[in-house]
Computed example of a mutant assay.
Amino acid sequence: MVAAAGLRLPLQDYLLADHELRELDRARVVLIDRCMRGFGFSYPVRHPTADLGPRSPTERRYGITDASDAAAHGYGLGDRDPARQKPPEKPDLDADAQTVLFGKGRSSVKGRPVPEGGCVTQADRSLGAGAPAGTDPGLAQQLSFQSFDLSRADSRVRRATRAWSACMAGHGYDYADPLAPLGDPALSGATSPRAVATATTDIRCKKATNLVGIWFAVESAYQRRLIDDHHDRLTGLKQANTARLRTAARLT
């Protein structure tokens, strides 16, 4: 096993997908703009519509895993690289508009009371209105970080990592960890023959050692254990996500 984009870790059932996050973001902007217009302001925020970054949460979780990407872009993301995109322009807001947006400063503007926390917080309250009380929106992500750290330190993954490192060393590349090449300044930026050669060797060594298959299996086991340990809280989070998406769908 090498290509990881299609793999699905157990905790992903409790995490919002990229398209769902974009849907919530669009709905949030609609609510903020509606609130701002009540004070005579607008909130003209434009969001990118293209899919940027890795194709899935698992595609680069264990380092580069797509052979065609490695051959074409080295460790880069090609057209999916967010750094290549023009950042959205920030709205030009005067002091009164910023007070309304963030709720900091005066308690009223143009004779109208500013919502507690401003239009931003009011939008978040509206999106979460149907969610169960006491839900921790960051729980699944926190557990996902925990499972990654646990699996990375697991003896089975460490053994596979050492095998991958030895394979890389046999081809003249000195990396102790499969995530290290992704952060190597010598391989970042524009695609270079060196980056392509390193990335394609990286893929071959992952295939030879089954690093991705081992790591994914080990982390999946840790995640299933964490889900059992936090079952009730994760169930509440899943219900909260469903409620927020239902609200967003009515707005967008």
Results as ranks from 00 to 15, higher is better:
residue 65 T to N: 12
residue 11 L to D: 05
residue 124 D to P: 00
residue 106 R to V: 05
residue 57 P to L: 14
residue 37 R to Q: 14
residue 145 F to N: 12
residue 119 C to W: 00
residue 34 R to D: 14
residue 100 V to G: 03
residue 75 Y to N: 04
residue 68 S to C: 11
residue 105 G to I: 04
residue 123 A to R: 01
residue 87 P to N: 04
residue 81 D to K: 01
residue 125 R to E: 07
residue 35 C to P: 13
residue 111 G to K: 02
residue 146 Q to M: 12
residue 132 P to R: 08
residue 78 G to R: 07
residue 44 P to F: 14
residue 122 Q to H: 02
residue 123 A to G: 03
residue 40 G to H: 10
residue 30 V to Q: 14
residue 98 Q to I: 04
residue 125 R to N: 06
residue 109 V to R: 00
residue 78 G to W: 03
residue 66 D to P: 11
residue 66 D to M: 12
residue 59 E to R: 07
residue 29 V to I: 15
residue 146 Q to P: 10
residue 72 A to F: 08
residue 61 R to C: 10
residue 63 G to R: 06
residue 119 C to N: 00
residue 66 D to G: 13
residue 15 L to N: 08
residue 116 E to G: 03
residue 79 D to K: 09
residue 40 G to V: 13
residue 102 F to K: 05
residue 138 G to T: 12
residue 47 H to K: 15
residue 88 P to L: 03
residue 76 G to T: 05
residue 55 R to S: 14
residue 3 A to R: 13
residue 32 I to D: 04
residue 145 F to W: 14
residue 63 G to D: 09
residue 124 D to K: 07
residue 120 V to S: 02
residue 49 T to I: 09
residue 115 P to Y: 00
residue 22 R to G: 14
residue 24 L to E: 09
residue 58 T to Q: 13
residue 119 C to T: 00
residue 50 A to L: 12
residue 138 G to A: 11
residue 114 V to F: 01
residue 36 M to F: 12
residue 28 R to K: 15
residue 20 E to R: 10
residue 95 A to T: 09
residue 103 G to S: 03
residue 131 A to K: 01
